[in-house]
Amino acid sequence: MPTMILVRHGRTTANASGVLAGRTPGVKLDETGREQVRRTGERLAVVPLAAVVSSPLERCRQTSRAIVEQQSEPTDLVIEKGITECDYGDWQGGTLTELGQEDLWNVVQSQPSAATFPGGESLATMQARAVAAVRRHDAELETTHGDHAVWAAVSHGDIIKAILADALGMHLDLFQRLHVDPASISIIRYGTHRPTVLASNTHAGDLAWLSVTPSTDDASVGGGAGPDAVSTHAAQASGRS
């Protein structure tokens, strides 16, 4: 039962100017984005990561490097095309103001499962290949690092929203109810019975509790006692307290 940390890349020049960058090459973090990912790297520094898996686009690779550089031990950085940005086709490079006038915009907002970008991919295809990619890495890391492995996937807003929606059992038509900010952290565990979403779109807070994985993925009836209790019980079981 590894733990997957989903990290959106930091703010880019395109984000700041309201442009849909898509897969446009050379889109990089702006000054605000670089500061955002530095802080995200600091949050994750207390969590030994088995790997950082990144979208191939430059803004994600910049974010991934900021995370890896603050790890206390060498951490593998893996490039994964399966979590690259949605192929927005002819929409790529357009301003959000202009795109908002297109008929397809309302489909994307209200029925994303029916949306296919002209000259690009559908949101349903995007979700399927992204979920398949993270599930594959999660299984591989469990095999190589054990079921207590913690790893990070660095990707894009719509990709992360689609992965979260799948883990929550939400239809893709509901995924616009989710919000994922630049450099935010969301957390999923894929268990035996079901995925569990531990956090979504977080910007602050201690993550040291992620180093302790519960011995079971059964849901705690009544909600449980929280991560401090999990850490205490794990320490007692191992004879450390």
Rank of each mutant, 00 (worst) to 15 (best):
T3G: 02
T3Y: 06
L6N: 02
V7W: 01
H9I: 14
N15F: 03
A16C: 04
A16P: 08
V19H: 04
V19N: 13
V19Y: 09
L20N: 03
R23M: 13
L29G: 10
E31A: 15
T32N: 03
R34I: 01
E35G: 10
V37A: 06
R39S: 08
E42D: 10
E42Q: 14
L49M: 05
A51Q: 09
A51R: 13
A51I: 15
V52P: 00
V52F: 11
P56Y: 03
P56M: 01
L57M: 12
E58S: 12
E58V: 13
E58L: 15
R59V: 09
R61Y: 02
Q62A: 12
T63Q: 03
I67D: 02
E69A: 10
Q71F: 11
S72Y: 00
S72G: 11
S72P: 06
S72R: 12
T75C: 14
I79L: 09
E80W: 00
K81D: 13
K81N: 12
D87N: 14
D87G: 03
D87M: 04
Y88R: 05
Y88K: 07
G94L: 13
T95S: 14
T97Q: 11
L104K: 05
W105M: 14
W105K: 08
V107A: 03
V108A: 13
Q111E: 14
P112S: 10
A114R: 14
A114C: 12
G119K: 11
G119F: 05
G119A: 04
G119I: 09
G120Q: 05
G120K: 09
G120R: 10
S122Y: 07
S122T: 13
A128K: 13
A130V: 11
V131W: 09
V131R: 06
A132V: 05
V134N: 10
D138F: 03
L141M: 06
E142D: 10
T143A: 15
T143S: 15
G146T: 11
D147P: 02
D147I: 07
W151M: 14
A152F: 07
S155R: 12
G157N: 11
G157T: 11
I159V: 15
A162K: 04
A162E: 03
A162V: 09
D166I: 13
A167W: 02
A167D: 07
A167Q: 02
H171M: 10
L172W: 08
F175T: 02
Q176S: 11
R177M: 09
L178W: 10
L178H: 09
H179D: 15
A183R: 02
R194M: 04
P195N: 02
V197I: 07
V197R: 05
L198R: 01
L198I: 04
A199I: 04
A199F: 06
T202N: 00
H203M: 04
L210D: 03
V212C: 07
S215L: 04
T216P: 01
D218H: 11
D218T: 04
S220D: 13
V221W: 14
V221K: 00
G222C: 06
G224S: 08
G226A: 09
A229C: 14
V230D: 05
S231Q: 10
A234T: 04
A235S: 15
A235F: 06
G239L: 05
R240I: 07
S241M: 10
